[in-house]
Design a protein around this nucleic acid. Structure first.
Length: 906
RNA sequence: GGGUGCUUAGCUCAGUUGGUUAGAGCGCCUGGUUUACACCCAGGAGGUCGGGGGUUCGACUCCCUCAGCACCCACCA
């Protein structure tokens, strides 16, 4: 080689240029080619807020490994990048920013259009940031296919999805109980609620014939139903009866019903229900067709209509006053002051959630509306079927259980949100002139207004404003997951049946964190199966992906969550890239992680992989220094490679290829990476390059091994390998090279065994000298009795001498034992070295005898297993053969050990 | 309350359907600049695999049980 390669790899110098080279060459693009197998990954769209964090980094690293390998395997590998508008998250980030700038109530002060404009500007900025950061990670995604959930064509997909469902009566407008945040004036998704423990009072009131317990007296004005357990002896006699009694604002009537949902042991075993402000109560009310009346308004005050005395009063104030009044009436039985319960708090706004019944849009998950495998099935059933029938495979499989459990408890999906950022619901209401004007007076236009204005008449689906006057569009927007659920196929052109959709869908694998299995993964399954089946595609084309791979969360060194509030625990991927290079970061995120399990990351780990990157660099540099320029350009045929020595390394390499392939097929990224790491460092560098020093004149093998290694590890560490490849061949790029194939003709058992023997031999000599206390630098003379391996040892005499620091190596016939020698037994080779200490032959004998005993037991066990009919009849062939193989191996080992024992006795 | 996962070397973790002497990286100790690499090389110490019980010729692995930690879901009228 006649050019210089730098002594240490400095990632920063190369990475940007390499990425540019890839991108400009068009290597990231995938073509529609019927001869090729498609391989698609839709990148989980990062939120279009903020910046890339370690979670994204893991995602990019893993997906890039899959895509690069698939591309090298000759598949049409398409990786679609994109971003998500992240409705609530984005809007609240921007609102906060505006508030910092002095705009107290952004919605009221700016109005809808202006606020949306602010958000749009913000999003454009951060989209750019994210794009660049994904590039920094080395992602080989097709930027021309990039999508954003608010793109025109994706909007159309969203509307079509809505339309389909609306027409199928799967989307309905219903008065349902929702989590209302009075502070933020919006509903909040179940997933966005946190529970906080709180100590409060628990009241016992005389309520007609029973005593009821409650923590919320302020909701109890209009309770008219007492519920008890049907088998509760205390109340058996009163079930079904109606009573008249004194209550907060005078006498009321209440009846008693029985339902099993009541816990007899809790409180007094009797309760009253408040359907409008409690989920459980609401469901009971629906079950028994009870009246539902709002007690608390949207600001958290008692409604005027409910009580003359307390109307308009905030609940926090009303509670004590109500109790006081009841006390005067002698209805308070007891107050428990030490009651601990959970209150629901909005994750973002920190407001205390008040359940409210409001008109919202829902997706019915139980209606049987999908033609699936010859039956009409509900959304729920289809979602179960695709996983149960293994059309979709979840890794790790234990999440299937979680998935099923989630579906079993799935309620209708509330898809409307009272925010503005997102897809506005394509439903229109015909209203009166008066309502129309009132509606437009208000700047804060969410469905709250509809509720207040009591607009709940006929709604009409329409993509555009319908003909005629006084139409108002539902001011709410769709849940962000509604559009995200279409991600795999809306990004391929749906609702149009494009060639792309036809060829690339379903995608190969969805790779994401386990924390969004429910939010997103499950909903993608829902949307994809529904929409595409609706279009008449065959079932197997309707799933969004064939595999789901769930990675764990990244934690700090002590397994704690990295959190922004404790910056010292946070690792910024970009800092790490700057310091150690992208390749090092990628490896540190991939190796040592197992699917579905969280992983700790800390800087030393990344530094460790940086060292490995440098090792690859230097090993390649060294190899290249030993290959002539012209040899570099030569094409060596397999036969030419075979004819050379060093067959052992070829064998090991073939084994590596097989194992790496198996691991990657099964998503064992860490194992695959580790094996390549181990091979490069311990086999290739520490043995192959070391043992060949001095006689390293074998360009065919050297180059073959180097190229293969670079290919194998390229998906993991694309930058350094691409740079090195450019020194081998400046015309081509590694990214487009062919993935190594297992080639049996390049495996040589005999040579491989011999090399293992020599490795072991040198290792033994080294440790023997270390134990003996001989100065490490001092060369010693040694005699080896090699028996039938004499030839092998002879062949490698120089290497052995050099690596084991032997001055003079005598290879001798058996029978010339040296005095005061240390004996080492390796397989059938006996080495006698003139060192001071001797191994105690008696101890050695005991050790070998013990080992023989163990072996015999082992053999007995396997023989027992093989004679067991239950086993032989049921176990697959391979397993039985494997057992037999083990048996034979064990027997031959015993024979060897026995021989050793004999020679020791001599 | 229901569920899941984890507990293996000082630290972070592997351990693929039970199999022979339980592995890696970092850290630590000893020694070494040998035709790439000190971001290196050679060697070493360190583990009764959370406790207890069971199944088995054989258990880190399977079953039961207890303890600790983490997370998810539901929810207390």
């Amino acid at each position: 080689m006649n050019f210089e390669i730098e002594k240490a790899y400095e990632a920063k110098k190369y990475e940007n240029d390499i990425y540019k080279k890839w991108e400009e060459s068009g290597s990231f693009k995938a073509s529609i080619d019927p001869k090729k197998e498609p391989y698609v990954i839709s990148m989980p769209p990062p939120n279009a807020t903020g910046t890339l964090h370690l979670g994204h980094a893991v995602m990019v690293a893993l997906e890039d490994i899959m895509i690069r390998r698939a591309r090298m395997q000759g598949k049409s590998a398409l990786w679609i990048p994109g971003t998500d508008h992240a409705a609530i998250a984005t809007q609240s980030v921007v609102e906060k920013k505006l508030q910092e700038q002095g705009i107290e109530k952004p919605r009221e002060e700016l109005g809808r259009e202006k606020l949306l404009e602010e958000i749009r500007t913000f999003v454009e900025d951060s989209k750019d940031t994210i794009r660049n950061q994904i590039r920094k990670m080395g992602a080989s995604c097709d930027w021309e296919s990039e999508k954003y959930t608010l793109d025109e064509d994706l909007n159309l997909a969203v509307k079509t999805f809505f339309k389909y469902m609306f027409e199928d009566d799967l989307i309905y407008h219903g008065g349902r109980i929702v989590n209302w945040d009075p502070k933020m004036q919006t509903t909040v998704a179940d997933d966005e609620i946190e529970y906080e423990e709180e100590k409060s009072k628990f009241y016992y009131f005389q309520y007609g014939p029973v005593v009821i317990g409650t923590a919320r007296p302020e909701t109890k004005f209009l309770d008219k139903v007492i519920v008890v357990h049907p088998e509760d002896d205390r109340y058996k006699d009163i079930i079904g009866k109606e009573f008249e009694m004194e209550w907060i604002d005078g006498p009321i009537k209440a009846k008693v019903i029985a339902d099993e949902c009541v816990d007899m042991k809790l409180g007094t075993g009797a309760m009253t229900i408040t359907p409008a402000h409690s989920l459980v109560d609401f469901e009971l009310a629906q079950k028994y067709d009870l009246e539902i009346e709002q007690i608390i308004d949207f600001d958290g005050k008692i409604r005027e209509k409910v009580s003359e005395e307390f109307g308009g009063m905030h609940i926090s104030e009303a509670r004590d006053k109500i109790v006081e009044k009841l006390e005067k009436k002698g209805l308070v039985v007891k107050i428990d002051h030490e009651y601990i319960h959970n209150i629901s708090v909005s994750y973002r706004g920190k407001g205390i959630i008040e359940p409210q019944v409001m008109k919202q849009w829902f997706i019915d998950v139980n209606k049987k509306a999908i033609d699936w495998k010859g039956k009409k099935m509900s959304i729920k059933e289809v979602m179960q079927d695709v996983v149960k029938s293994k059309m979709i495979n979840i890794v790790p499989s234990r999440f299937e259980k979680t998935y099923f459990h989630w579906i079993d408890n799935l309620r209708d999906w509330c898809i409307s949100r009272q925010i503005w950022w997102g897809h506005q619901i394509p439903m229109w209401y015909k209203v009166t002139k008066e309502q129309y004007e009132k509606f437009h007076e208000k700047k804060d236009r969410t469905s709250l207004i509809l509720n207040i204005l009591k607009i709940d008449g006929e709604a009409k689906f329409s993509e555009e404003k319908p003909e005629g006057d006084y139409w108002i569009q539902d001011p709410d927007t769709l849940d962000t997951w509604f559009s995200a659920s279409l991600w795999t196929f809306s990004t391929l052109g749906w609702p149009e049946h494009t060639e792309k959709l036809e060829y690339f869908h379903p995608t190969e694998v969805l790779e994401t964190g386990y924390d969004i299995l429910f939010f997103w993964v499950a909903r993608m399954i829902l949307a994809s199966t529904y929409c595409l089946r609706h279009d008449g595609l065959p079932e197997e084309k309707c799933i969004p992906f064939k595999n789901v791979y769930l990675h764990g969360l990244i934690r700090d060194r002590h397994g704690k969550k990295m959190s922004k509030s404790r910056p010292e625990t946070c690792i910024d991927p970009l800092d790490m890239i700057d310091k150690y290079g992208t390749d090092a970061l990628r490896l540190s995120l991939v190796i040592g992680s197992t699917p579905g399990n969280d992983m700790s990351l800390f800087e030393e780990k990344i530094a460790g992989y940086r060292n490995f990157i440098n090792k690859i660099w230097n090993a390649s540099r060294f190899a290249l220094m030993n290959i002539d320029e012209e040899d570099l350009k030569k094409e060596f045929t397999p036969d030419m490679i075979k004819s050379h020595a060093d067959k052992w390394v070829l064998t090991e390499l073939q084994n590596l290829i097989t194992e790496v392939d198996q691991d990657l097929e099964k998503f064992r990224f860490s194992d695959a990476g580790n094996k390549i790491y181990e091979f490069i460092w311990n086999q290739y560098c520490d043995w192959y390059l070391e043992i060949s020093k001095g006689e390293l004149k074998n360009p065919a093998v050297l180059l073959h091994v180097l190229k293969t290694i670079l290919k194998l590890i390229h998906p993991f560490v694309p930058f350094v390998t691409e740079q090195l490849w450019s020194y081998i061949n400046s015309e081509t790029m590694l990214i487009n090279e062919e993935w190594p194939q297992y080639d049996k003709s390049l495996t040589f058992e005999q040579e491989s065994q011999e090399m293992k023997l020599i490795q072991e031999l040198i290792g033994e000599i080294r440790s023997a000298r270390s134990e003996s206390g001989v100065e490490p630098a001092k060369k010693i003379n040694a005699t080896i009795y090699a028996g039938k391996f004499t030839e092998t040892i002879q062949k490698n005499k120089d290497s052995i001498s050099r690596l084991a620091r032997i001055g003079e190596l005598t290879i001798s016939e058996k029978g010339e034992k040296l005095e005061k020698a240390k004996a080492i037994f390796i397989d059938q080779v006996e080495i006698y070295l003139p060192l001071s200490d001797m191994i105690d032959p008696a101890k050695e004998k005991v050790r070998i005898q013990k080992e023989i005993e163990n072996k015999e037991k082992f053999i007995k066990g396997i023989e027992g297993k093989l004679s067991n009919k239950g086993f032989t009849d049921n176990a697959p062939k391979e397993v039985i053969e494997g057992e037999q193989k083990k048996l034979e191996e064990a027997k031959s080992t015993i024979a060897k050990l026995t021989e050793q024992l004999k020679s020791l006795s001599d």
